[in-house]
Each structure stands twice: as C-alpha cells, then as structure tokens.
Nucleic acid binder design. Structure first.
Lengths: 346, 346
DNA sequence: GTTAGCACTCCCCTAATTCGAGTGCTAACA
DNA sequence: TGTTAGCACTCGAATTAGGGGAGTGCTAAC
C-alpha cells in the first residue's frame, strides 16, 4: 500500500481534523461529504476514510462511530501547517525588549493575554540569562556588620544580596575588593564565573582573611544563576474545563496540578531549549509529550529571545484538537500586545 | 422554644459535624446513636435532630436523607473549638524571622507544606512592609547614562532600580545626592515617604536640573511599596477535587480560577488585615465569605508578624466540612517547619 | 472509480424499576 | 415526661431495559 497521501486524502484528513476541532465529537462520512470543495458522496468518503484508518491517520473510538484524528494525523496536519506559517513566527523572537525591570509583571500579563486569546492554558518562562555579562559590581557597607553586594549585567538585570559579616571590614578593604571585582569580572559572561575563578580572585586579594573569602563567595553566589530555579508564569489552567475530553476529574486534577507545580513544565522547557538549536516553534502531540500527565494534550512552544542572549519560552497547552492555526496567530498578536505594553512604560 | 442548646444537643451536633467531615455524606440518626458516649437509641436522636433542624443548626438536603451541618452549625462548632485552641495559635505570630532574602522561596514552601499537611488549598501572602524603615540608600553610576539605586530597609529587604539618564551626571552630584538622601531618609518609615517629602528634597538639592528630579523620583518609586501588588503564593488548589461537594466542573473551575487569579484572595486578605486588630485566627464559613465563588467553602486565615512590623497572612481554603482542628494543628506544625527552614540557612 | 442502498452495530438517552437509608409518627414502657 | 421499638412512607441513587440514531461496511449497479 502506498504510504503517501494523494491530494484528496489530504483534503479529507484536513476536513476531519477541522471538524473535530470544532465539535470535539467523532466525525462521520456524511458530514465530510457536505464539505465545500469536495464533491463526492458519503460512500466515497467512507472508502477513503477506511484507507486513512488503515494508514493510521485517524481512528475509530468504536465500531459505528465516526472517526477522530490520531496523533499521527495531527502531526501531518501540523507539519503541513507549519510549512506555511513558520516564517511568520520568526519575528516573535526578536520583538521583546530587555525592559527587565518590570519583566515579571509583563510576563504575567503575557500569559494572561495568551490564555484568554486562545482559550487554552498558557505558560511563559522568565528569560534565562544565557551569555549575559557582568557590567557593574559594587559592595557597599550598610552598617558595620553588613555589606550589600549589587551586580548589574549588561541587560540591566540587577542581582543583589546582603552579606552578614562576622567581623568588621574597613573601608580600605571594601574599596580594594570593589576594584578587584570590577577589574576581574567586568565583561565576563556570568556562566564563566565559577569556583575556580573565585579561588583565583581570593588569591589575588592577597589576603587570607576569612572575611574576604566569605564576601567573595557571597558575590559569586549573587552573580551565578541558579539554573534550577526557572520561573514560570501560567494562566488559564482552568480553560481545560472547556474541553470535555480533558475535563474529567482525575485528568483535570492531574493536569492542573502539573500546572501548579510547574516543575515538570520547567523540565520540559529546559529540554526543549537545550535539545535543539530550534528557536522557532515546536509542537508536541499526545504521546510525543514527555510529561505523562499531559499525554492527552498538545503543547505548542515558541522560544523568544531578548537582546543579548536572554532566552525564554512561551507555551500553549490544550487538547489534541487544538486549533493550531489560531495558536500561531495568537503568538503573532502577542507581538502587538507586547509592543503596546512596552511602549506604555517610559 | 429555647434557643439555647443543652449538653446532649451539643454532643449530637458535634457528632454530626465530625461524622460529616469524615464521610462527606449526610449522616443519619442510626449512625449517631452508635456514637461512643451517647447511649440513646436512634429514635431519641431523631427527636433531637428534629429539634436541631428547627433551630437551624443542621439541614436536610431532602426529605428522607440524613442531616448535614448548616453554616450556623459550623459556626457554633468553630466557636466552641476556638475557645480551646486560640492561645495555641498566638505563638505563630512571632515565630517567623525576617530572613527576607529568600523569602519568596520559603513562602512557596510554606504554602506547599500547608497544602499537603491539610489536604486543603493553602495560600500565603508575602509580608507587607508596614512600618519598616529606610536603613541605607545608595546611588551608583553603572555607566555614564545609567545609575543604579539601592535601598535597604531595616528588615534587610533590598529594593533597587536602574535609572536611565538623559544627560550625564558628574561624580560630585551623585555624591551630593547620596549624602542628601541618607541624611534625610535614614530611619524614615517607608510609608512616610510621599510626594511632598520628595518635593522638599528636590528643593533642598538646590538644583533645578531635571536630571536630579528624575533621579529623586526614581528613588521614591524604588522605595515606595505598591500596595496593590500583594504577592500571594498558593498551593494545593487541586486538593478541592478530593471533596465531591466542591468538585463538580463549574464550581471547581471557578474555584481554581479564583486561586489562579489571586486578585480576589488579595482583596480578602487586605480586608481581613485592615478591618480588625485581630492578629489571630479568623474563620469564614460559607455565606460569610466575601468571595462569591467561595461560598461553598470555608476559609481559615491567620495573620503572622515578622519582626519590625511586617505582616502577612496564611490561609487554608477547604470545604465547609473542613477539619478545623487539624487545620489549627497544622498551623502549629508550620511553626516547626519554618524553624527548620530558617535554621538550614546561614 | 463512484454511488445508492441496506443491513448491522453500538453508543446514548430516557424511562421504569428496584433498593435502601433515613425519616416521622404512634404507641408502649419506665 | 422522656425514651424506645416498630412501621409505613419518602425520595434519591443505582440498575436495567429499550428504543433511536448516527455511522459503518458491504454489495451491486452505473
């Protein structure tokens, strides 16, 4: 049997998927035969559908029910779709501006907008500072027993920490440390700052005082990004109740838990970001999904990139009969939304 | 009719509530008659239950079903309970330490612990800095066009912001501003820092340069707490699926949405914190609840207070047949959990 | 290759039935 | 007067039975 699909089979598959998306119910041959640009009778459709079932693109929940698309069917549909839409998404990557100050609020808003636009659940990760560099470091004395360390990176992210001292530190030492830190760390990408580097700094400091060591360690901790603690904002988790096939209690409960916990989502995103050089769109359908509790869903993720190597991910989680086209369009409209959001700030 | 309850009626009511908490199903006279320290037949119980129904402490979902406690019944039960337990909670207030650095993580954990201990949904608000004072302010130049403002309060909360400048600012001006800020704002409670004060500072600065004005405004913004943006961490929202009376789709969806959005929760907490001088426990039962979507629930909130006037709220949201005793105990055990958490950090 | 026709399948919906927990009432008893 | 046993009655929940109908697969004709 030819594994290749002729034009008509494709059209029929597309019609099945589209109809199923709308109704959420198995679609029969008669429904499809009425489809606009397909002037054949239901019997013909039945024959074709039988073929499509054999090839695995659609399945029958039970004899004498209509057909619903299989994961494989969705996959074909999405792949065809992507061909047309891929380039449109490319723009999203470059549109976000590093206004990291109120970033969390903006991202929360983004998640909300996405969720309400699409009627699916949405998630947005805080961009990871991959490749950003140290621009400015300063230690200041708050009181005799406390320093505050402030680090600014070249994408204007501020990190800081209070350092409690066991013994006092004189002004001269602080000055010296500031100089040392700035001359050695300025312009250094933060992921290059590791224990070895800190050890070398300690040596250069030429002092064996434990206070200095403490301070340097604290500074290192301040700078270094805890890779595990990826923040994720979600919204619209309850949208899943709109899709009966996801909304039964046990499934819904698991799904929403997964959303609430975010840990698994974070893992997914991490994998997605590291696994491929892919900065565009990915779609996980059903069994392709690494998160078990989401095997009944589809997930569309898009990587975005702010200036200077900050990467984040936007994702939509919905039922397999997700309206993939609409999702893609929403990601586009998101661009507009973001533009507005960022414009409304100084 | 006497509105007062005799000892036996109380016992029966208590038994009904306890049994209903466990099973979640209307409880009948026979069940209660088997209750340990109550040696009467089911017929007698029926008579008493009939009385209790008339008095409004319990209701019958339909004729020939058992009885379930009414809001009024729960209220009585809780009030009785509180008498015994009130003092035990008082301790919680003073137990949290202002380790505000990793505060968000701790609070997230707290929410999680509470949720899993109680099997209800939990929420924790970030403490509001009411009454904390400015301890340290510093402006530093990051590059010719950028300053970074760092403010430390006396409970070691750091706030900071990058200030973009239209024109350069010389070192001398920065030094002058730092001096001005510290001499004028040190020790001042942050809620006292308002526009008038900033205006006076601008005057004192003795310069009419718009740059100075910009910087001062930015500093003010950095310091001032946006009262509306109360952060709330929630956990265990999906626990509501464990209680059939809350788990039907529309209710569950609304409830979880309310949890996700947090806005209404924030309003509730705000009201609760301002409305009374009450720093202990409050319990909202059913119709007493200001949030409409939560009218089928009960909510237990407790205010905690960190050193130096930072107040936050912990809350448990569950079904009306919530195990109030257990919740109270959990709040106690929370104290231990927190102690450990805080000890494990330097 | 397409189509009409037809028997057959199997889920879904509704109605009817049964089942049983629980009540309210009455009458008898201490 | 309060307590208890007994009993008829009620009403929701669970079960069963039976159309109804959408949809299929197959066959035969075009």
């Amino acid at each position: 049997m030819d594994t290749r699909l002729d034009e008509r089979k494709k059209k029929i598959l597309k019609a099945i998927i589209r109809t199923y998306m709308e109704t959420g119910e198995p679609v029969g041959s008669r429904t499809i035969s009425k489809y606009a640009d397909l002037n054949v009778s239901s019997a013909t459709i039945r024959n074709e559908m039988s073929d499509l079932t054999d090839m695995g693109y659609i399945v029958q929940p039970h004899t004498s029910a209509g057909r619903i698309p299989s994961d494989k069917g969705y996959r074909l549909y999405v792949d065809e779709l992507m061909k047309e839409k891929e380039e449109e998404i490319a723009e999203i990557r470059d549109l976000m501006i590093a206004q990291t100050d109120k970033m969390d609020k903006i991202l929360k808003k983004v998640a909300k907008v996405l969720a309400s636009n699409t009627n699916y659940a949405a998630m947005v990760t805080v961009p990871q500072y991959s490749g950003s560099k140290v621009k400015f470091i300063q230690l200041s004395r708050v009181n005799p027993q406390q320093l505050v360390a402030v680090v600014v990176t070249d994408n204007n992210v501020i990190r800081n920490q209070i350092i409690e001292l066991d013994e006092e530190m004189d002004d001269e030492t602080i000055l010296k440390l500031n100089l040392l830190l700035n001359t050695n760390l300025n312009g250094v990408p933060i992921q290059d700052i590791n224990l070895g580097m800190i050890a070398r700094l300690k040596e250069q400091a030429g002092m064996h005082s434990s206070v200095v060591a403490t301070v340097l360690d604290a500074v290192a901790a301040t700078i270094s990004v805890d890779r595990d603690d990826m923040e994720i904002y979600t919204s619209g988790a309850t949208n899943i109740f709109k899709y009966p096939e996801l909304a039964d209690k046990s499934k819904a409960s698991e799904l929403i838990s997964a959303f609430e916990e975010k840990q698994e989502l974070a893992d997914l995103v991490k994998e997605h970001m590291s696994d491929s050089e892919n900065t565009g769109l990915s779609v996980y359908i059903g069994e392709e999904m690494p998160i078990k509790t989401m095997r009944d869903c589809s997930v569309v993720t898009a990587t975005y990139e702010l200036g200077k190597g900050m990467k984040g991910t936007i994702g939509i989680i919905g039922p397999k009969r997700m309206d993939y086209e609409n999702v893609v369009d929403s990601l586009k409209s998101l661009k507009v939304q973001l533009d507005n959001l960022l414009k409304n700030k100084t």
